[in-house]
Structure formats: structure tokens, C-alpha cells
Design a protein around this nucleic acid. Sequence first.
DNA 1: AATCTCAAGTCAACATAGTTGACATGAGAG
DNA 2: CTCTCATGTCAACTATGTTGACTTGAGATT
Lengths: 155, 155
Amino acid sequence: MAKTSQAAGLHRASLTKLHDLDAALELMYYGWRGMTLEADAYLAKQGLSRPHHRILYVVARRPDIAIGSLLEVLGISKQALNRPLNLLLERKLLTSKRSPEQHRSKLLRLTAAGQRIEQRASDHERKVLREAFDRAGVSGAAAWMAVMEAIADHN
Amino acid sequence: MAKTSQAAGLHRASLTKLHDLDAALELMYYGWRGMTLEADAYLAKQGLSRPHHRILYVVARRPDIAIGSLLEVLGISKQALNRPLNLLLERKLLTSKRSPEQHRSKLLRLTAAGQRIEQRASDHERKVLREAFDRAGVSGAAAWMAVMEAIADHN
DNA sequence: AATCTCAAGTCAACATAGTTGACATGAGAG
DNA sequence: CTCTCATGTCAACTATGTTGACTTGAGATT
């Protein structure tokens, strides 16, 4: 699961711009890469990868979430969730218990170890954002957020 | 190759924000999704997917690129390039010819059909960006670019 | 008590996108 | 005639996802 290898650098290739927005398009690509690169490397060291992080991230922000809700939030099938989720339970980064009344569903929570890993992985991503925002200033950061919201909510 | 299915919507989940930058972090995730969603759907209708688009995109902007250079730009192994590239050649979206002097390397070019598909797929992505930039105004777009550059070039 | 529903879990088969490693081919250069 | 070097190809593997078909176990209904 996840190699330590990779070009890691993957310098932004200099391609001829055929359209006005090609530069922006490429920035989205390399921006995503830039934000996740260190987090992925950290996760790989822990024997984890992005799907595990996504689970930890969501459970951290919705303690006692049921598996069905987690599936909805992640937008994947339960079969796809199965493996990474079980690994996290085995590694005791997550706990699951049945709720007192709603005995049908299982509630997920992070253990202390799970919280630590979630925090460190997300910290790598936030660090990249923070440095960029610091350079851009408060108004630049706000403008970035506004544009990203428009892109994310498009349609 | 690529299903037409998917939640397609995948509404931005409302998660408790544990940190200042969690909102920004999630925006990067959903922004990437938002930009590529329609392009991926279009490509799927053509029986293609993102790796094919990446190849078409690069070759469009570097006509007569050799395979070795393409590998560098894409940052994948030649074995990984092999299948999508051969599909594009079979479907006559790309041509390869040996150059007159440098007989060792093969030069890649888009056919008219390849250009059409590349353009349409990229247009879907640019459309999302254009609408967001229109709302944000020139200064907002410039700020977005500046922040994304800082993120992309981080490290 | 018997049955229905519903969340969760599990098994199999498959698709896609990537990896390493090993080796073949074909042209140019020495 | 051999060496290099870009390209091509085969095999085996990993990881992340998909559908479809089923089981299990608890709660609710009749």
C-alpha cells in the first residue's frame, strides 16, 4: 500500500498555453498535488493512504457517525469502504460500538492514536495552505476561498 | 472503462470544522471534483478517462513530443503509459511517426479527431473555471492564481 | 411466534491505474 | 560488429474502486 517512491518533485511542466485558462487549469492540478504530497508521504510511512485519511478526517469531525452515513459522505460503496475501515479498526485507530437505542447501526469514533494520525496528516495539508495564505494576505485568501466555492459548487 | 454512474452530485458534506483551515482544505478537495466532474463524464461517453485526457492535453501543447518526454511530463512509467497510449493510437486520436533525423524516437501528434476530443474535454474544465472567475472579477482571479501558485510550488 | 425490514458484513468477479523487473527490437554511433 | 539508447512488451503485483448476490442480526409488524 503506497510506495515511498514517486517523482515527489514532479516539476510543473512548461506546456504551451493554447487557451486563456490553461494556466489556471494546470494550477488546479498541481495545486492538488502540492497540497497532498507531504500528507501522502506521511501516511505512507504509517502504512496508510488517502482513503484511510479520508475516513479518519470525516470521523474526527462527526464522532459517532454510523457506517451508512460515512458511506454517504465519502461517496463510495460499502465494499470499497470495507477494507480500509477494517484496517483502521484492527490498528485501533477507530472504535465501533452499537448505540444504546439504535442497536442497528454502529457508531464510529477515533481513538487517541487515530486522532493523532488524523491530525498530523491533515496538518501537512493545512501547512501548505497556511503558507500560501500568509503570502497572499487576508484579502487574497478570501478571494481564493470565494473562487474555490464557486468551482466546488458549480452545478 | 469509466462508468456513467457515480453520485455525480456528491454534495459538499457539512462537517464540523476542527481547525481554521479545514474549510479551505475541503474546498480544495471539492474544487478538484467540481472542475473535473463534467469533463470526466464527457470522456466516459467517449470510452476514455482521465489518463487519456492527460495524454491528449500534453500532446496538444507539445506537438511532436517524443514518448520519453511524454513520460517525464506525465510522471508515470512507460508500462503505465502503454495501454492508454495504444488505445489512442488505435482510435486514431493520435499519430506517431519517426522523425527524419532522430530516427530513434517517435513523435506524437493529435489527429483532427484527437484535437476535437481534447478541446471538448478541456473546455468542460475551463468552463467551470471561467464561471468562477467571472463571479470573482479580475482581481479575485489574480489572487486565486497567486495562491494556487504558492500551493503548487510549495517546496 | 413468524415474518418483514434494514444496517451491516462478506464473497466473487471485474475494471482501472499504477508499480517493478526482465527482456526484445531496431536504429545510430563507435 | 558491438554498444547505446528509445521504444515496446510480458508478467506479476498493489491499490482503489465498481456490481451483484448473498448472510447476519436486531427491531418492528402482524
